[in-house]
């Protein structure tokens, strides 16, 4: 067993690159679903109504207090136990592990992002909300026009690192038979007994993906903060 660079470049890396779209699909779908779900989670967590904040509190605690791998197993095997064979026959796509992985990653992201968003909502300057109320905006209009957009901007840096963590978390989907980058690397490793080429190849692909995602997120952050660039330049 030696580290065979030509084998890695010609056989392993193309196979892994072919699996990159699956990893990105996992990332994009759970990022979108999870961050959309994070808004009601954060709003409920901040509510004064115990029927709202208590479930949100427990949900966040469960998502952040248990390992993601346990959550993935619970969703994959648990739903597999709950779904009857008739349902499986009706919806054959449910046999594919990717849906369970997306589901688990989404609710996990909803918990983590919900907590980040909660902090950001609390950091919105009170005067801005007061001003919006003084303009006669209803509570709902204030929330979706003033509080939420401001809060999203405030938590952008934290959200960016959360998305990097989510990209790394997609690797766990390989444990429920999803052939994303690590899943393919593992399949080749088990088939060929080559440990160095396959796993180091996967490491190279992940480093490249994290590098590119960081650049994309920086772009998005700069775009969303466009009007503030001039201000911070003045302040500096």
């Amino acid at each position: 067993m030696i580290f065979d660079i030509p084998y890695m470049v010609t056989i392993v890396l193309p196979a892994l690159l072919y699996a990159v779209p699956t990893s990105l699909l996992l990332l994009a779908s759970s990022a979108i679903i999870g961050n959309i779900l994070a808004v009601p989670v954060a709003a409920a967590r901040l509510s004064r109504n115990p029927l709202l904040w208590m479930p949100a509190y427990v949900f966040i605690l469960l998502m952040r207090g248990t390992p993601l791998l346990v959550q993935i197993y619970l969703v994959y095997y648990g739903l597999g136990q709950a779904l009857t064979p008739e349902i499986m026959r009706e919806f054959p796509f449910l046999r594919d592990g990717i849906w369970y992985a997306i589901f688990a990653l989404s609710i996990n992201t909803a918990g983590y992002s919900g907590e980040i968003l909660r902090g950001a909502i609390l950091a919105v300057p009170h005067g801005e909300i007061e001003a919006a109320r003084a303009f006669g905006m209803s509570r709902w209009v204030v929330f979706h026009r003033v509080t939420l957009p401001r809060a999203i901007r405030i938590c952008l840096p934290a959200m960016s690192s959360e998305m990097i963590l989510l990209l790394k978390a997609t690797a766990l989907a390989s444990t429920v038979t999803v052939y994303e980058v690590l899943g393919v690397a593992q399949a080749i490793r088990i088939e060929t007994y080559r440990v160095y080429d396959t796993l180091i190849g996967a490491a190279i692909v992940y480093i490249a993906m994290v590098f590119l995602l960081t650049r994309v997120l920086n772009r998005i952050e700069r775009y969303l903060n466009k009007d503030r660039q001039a201000m911070s330049a003045q302040a500096a």
Binding site: A171, L182, V210
Partner: peptide, 9 residues
């Protein structure tokens, strides 16, 4: 930059 699972493997 690397997934923890990959590092452990």
């Amino acid at each position: 930059a690397l997934p923890e699972l990959l590092l452990i493997l």
